[in-house]
Amino acid sequence: MTFTFLSKNCFLLVLCTTAAVVATVPEPKNVRATSINFGMVLEWEAPRDAPGNLTYSVEFWSYSSGFIPWCSNIHETRCDFSKNLSVFGVHKFRVRAELQEETSPWVETPEFSIDKHTQIGAPTVKLISKEGDIEVEIQDPDMRNQELRNVYSRVSYNIRYWKEDEADKFSMLNDQLQNRVVLLQLEPWTRYCVQAQVYILYSEKRGEFSKAVCETSTTDGKVKPWVTALVMLGSMVVVMGTVMVIFFAALYGYKAIKFLYPSVKLPEHFKQYLIEPPHSYIFLAMQNSPQPEEQCHEVFIVSEATESSATKEGTPL
Score class of each variant (00 low, 15 high):
A23N: 09
S57T: 14
A46V: 10
E76F: 14
D80R: 15
I128G: 02
P105M: 02
D133I: 05
S86C: 09
K92T: 05
V136R: 00
L54K: 02
E111H: 03
A50T: 06
F38V: 02
H91D: 05
G66I: 10
L85Y: 04
V90T: 02
E45T: 06
L54F: 07
D80A: 13
E59Q: 15
N53W: 02
S104P: 04
T55F: 06
I36L: 09
G66Y: 14
Q100T: 05
A50M: 05
A46W: 08
D133V: 11
W106P: 14
C79M: 12
P123E: 00
I134F: 01
E135D: 06
F81K: 10
E59V: 10
H91S: 07
G66P: 10
A97Q: 08
V136T: 00
N53Y: 07
P51Q: 13
W70E: 14
W44H: 14
L99E: 12
I68S: 11
G89A: 00
E101S: 11
C79N: 14
D49H: 15
V41Q: 12
E45Q: 10
P47E: 08
V87F: 01
I128A: 02
P47D: 06
K92G: 10
C79I: 09
P105S: 07
G52Y: 06
D80Q: 15
N84A: 13
K83P: 08
N73W: 03
F67M: 09
G52V: 12
T103S: 08
R78M: 15
D49K: 14
Y56T: 13
M40W: 00
C71L: 15
T24A: 05
W106N: 07
K29H: 01
F38L: 01
F88D: 02
E76M: 12
I120D: 12
H91C: 04
T124E: 13
V125M: 02
K126N: 03
T24S: 10
S72N: 15
F112I: 04
P69K: 15
E59S: 12
P105A: 06
I74F: 08
H75A: 15
W61S: 14
S57R: 14
K29E: 07
D80Y: 15
H117G: 02
S65E: 12
S129M: 00
P47A: 09
E111I: 00
G66H: 12
F93M: 09
V95Q: 08
P69N: 15
A23I: 07
L54R: 01
S129A: 02
T124N: 11
R96T: 02
F112G: 04
I114H: 03
V87I: 09
E98S: 15
K126E: 05
I36D: 09
K130H: 10
R48H: 10
S72F: 10
H117V: 01
V31Y: 04
T124L: 04
P110C: 10
I114Y: 00
Q119G: 12
E111Q: 08
V90K: 01
E98C: 13
T34Q: 08
P105G: 04
F67V: 11
F88T: 05
F88N: 03
R94Y: 11
T34V: 13
R32W: 01
K116P: 00
E135L: 06
P105D: 12
S64R: 13
N73Q: 15
S82I: 09
N53F: 04
F88C: 01
V136N: 03
C71S: 14
S62P: 05
